[in-house]
Design a protein around this nucleic acid. Structure first.
Lengths: 343, 343
DNA sequence: GAAAAAACTTTACGCGTGATAAAATTAAGT
DNA sequence: ACTTAATTTTATCACGCGTAAAGTTTTTTC
């Protein structure tokens, strides 16, 4: 027969013995048709494996069933893990995730938003590049398409933000470090791109105040996202100089700490809690590799299960009720202290 | 005026003073219209920022300007790095990359191919899941849509394969290890999913033969992609037992080695070349984190610049001349020895 | 078992663009 | 200015599906 000639819904409707509009209805919602016709269609479906043309479907719809997902840097395992979790949640909600990475920088971020615009997504989950983001463009985008921010906040942009409570988490780890040894110095980049880095800095100052300690900083130079390299290079330099402000170092993020630990190892500086150790190092984020550093990295685990769940929930609500009151939703989730050998 | 009412090409053609078919021609190839009309269109473009509806464009086309890019696991920084490089090459060629990860396993791989089918990509670059891949489905897909494999080969599937020459690279590192100390034992998983693991195993046997050494294996249990965890857990177990077949261990890949190094550190086993070290560990792939292990991991760097370039080149050739002779192209690229502290 | 409700069929149109043939215009060369 | 080639315009169809209206059949309800 003409088995292979099922080119469109018309043809498929013919072989399944159902009219095309009903078949169309079926594909939009299988439960919206009578059980008997549904089974007829599904029988034919098994035999002819037809699928509606996605472009024709979306041509009329002003919004599709896609949800854009933009992360600043997929090469960072931390974001890769979050992205993966979010993909799952989006799929569960019956939408198709479209994952894009802004690794090129703020320009790539804008380019990603442009690509998404062309695809007319129902909504977008955006972890912005950071301070360097093209705020005007991101704003313009968020005004046109339902957008929820996660991981890093840009004030007032999008319909909501969900991320970590840096004040709580930094307080938690500063408290732990102070109780278990010398108060920590804060290791950070001079000009961090990520807004979270700035918030953690402020949170560190406040936490140290609460501990009646004076905040001290180790600020290092470095551009871009090659944090391990920066931590390593600057660690080597610092250890060579030998004038650390404290024997406990709290890094602004795990990736800096990973580099710093490698530098300490190379310089034969024992890191940890034991009596023969001269340095303690802690991080923030619970990077997937934090448990395989030497020693394992004491750090803060972000609750990104919760962050992801709430972000997806928010974007879905926005999609289903697009004309709701314009109150910007926002929630910060507590971090959890993960104790390993390094501090 | 009616500034914002540019809803389609008709409207845009009107405001730019050019007929719609000519505008259409412009968007398909700006150089195909007269310079004067081109500038007219581009002037209007700046003023009204219209962009053709991507769904309407693709509705008729049997193939789009998209190239699918499927990697087994984006959470693995190695694949994240390759994917990023490939994305750049695809963009340079004037196509849009669509990146998908099969992290769910072979089922997700099939699902990804299904998604891609719906999008009608011009071609697909596929790094297959491995032995567990649904061979029949992948084959069926590759028969319908131009497909090139990279990283891992599936015999006869797709129009070509580009990857690393495991025989050369393993020979290179075995030779180095033998010259610089005790001949290596091969650390691997019992049932590796990745075809490269099997090839490296065979290559190891052959290389040891050439060195007049007897091949010895350390085979460990473990499922899935959590290689660091497996290396770490099994490393702890092995070191507790204390009956290693050799003081030099060549791991099937870097991620196993990273776990193994962490285990050695925890057990106070000094790894490296110095006289006070009792163990040497080497890996394969030059994982982005290999330079931050303690000590830095001696390994083989895959030439994935070349692999990526050739893969993209091959898929482009296939797209432009779809009916060329059906010889399956294939090339293996040499690895480079990266010497660090661990061996 | 009849009336009401629900689901389906038929018919027809619209979406925004690509493609093409024939006619009209413009540019280039002499 | 005239010829010729190149380009643009006009007009029309195609693509595959969503959707609405009107009529028909099936199922549910009492």
């Amino acid at each position: 027969m003409s088995d292979n000639s099922i080119k469109n819904m018309e043809d498929f409707a013919a072989v399944s013995g159902i009219s095309r509009p009903t078949v169309s209805k079926y594909f939009n919602d299988p439960k919206s048709v009578r059980a008997s016709t549904r089974s007829k269609i599904e029988t034919a479906l098994e035999k002819y494996d037809y699928r509606p043309n996605i472009y024709a479907i979306n041509q009329n719809r002003s919004r599709t069933k896609n949800i854009g997902l933009v992360v600043p840097n997929m090469t960072d395992p931390f974001f890769a893990a979050i992205a993966r979790a979010l993909e799952g949640l989006i799929l569960d909600a019956g939408f198709s995730p479209l994952l894009l990475s802004s690794h090129g920088g703020a320009d790539q971020e804008v380019a990603n938003l442009e690509s998404l615009r062309a695809i007319k997504p129902a909504g977008v989950l955006l972890a912005p590049w950071g301070r360097a983001s093209n705020l005007a463009e991101v704003c313009r985008f968020a005004d046109q398409i339902p957008t929820v921010l996660f991981d890093a906040n840009l004030d007032g942009v999008g319909a909501g933000f969900f991320g970590s409570d840096n004040v709580q988490s930094i307080d938690l780890i500063v408290d732990y470090l102070c109780r278990s040894g010398e108060a920590p110095a804060f290791f950070e980049m001079e000009n961090p791109i990520n807004p979270n880095a700035l918030r953690r800095r402020t949170a560190y100052v406040a936490a140290m105040e609460r501990q009646n300690q004076t905040a001290t900083f180790i600020r290092v130079k470095g551009d871009g996202w090659d944090f391990e390299e920066i931590g390593y290079r600057e660690g080597l330099r610092l250890f060579a100089q030998g004038d650390l402000p404290s024997s406990t170092i709290l890094c602004s993020n795990d990736r800096l700490a990973i580099g710093l630990l490698a530098a300490a190892f190379e310089r034969d500086i024992k890191v940890g809690l034991d009596s023969d150790c001269s340095l303690r190092i802690a991080g923030h984020d619970d990077h997937p590799f934090a448990r395989y550093t030497c020693p394992g990295l004491t750090t803060i685990a972000q609750d990104y299960a919760a962050i992801g769940a709430r972000s997806v929930e928010a974007i879905l609500k926005l999609i289903h009720r697009p004309d709701q009151p314009k109150t910007r939703e926002m929630a910060l989730f507590e971090g959890r202290l993960v104790m390993r050998g390094s501090a």
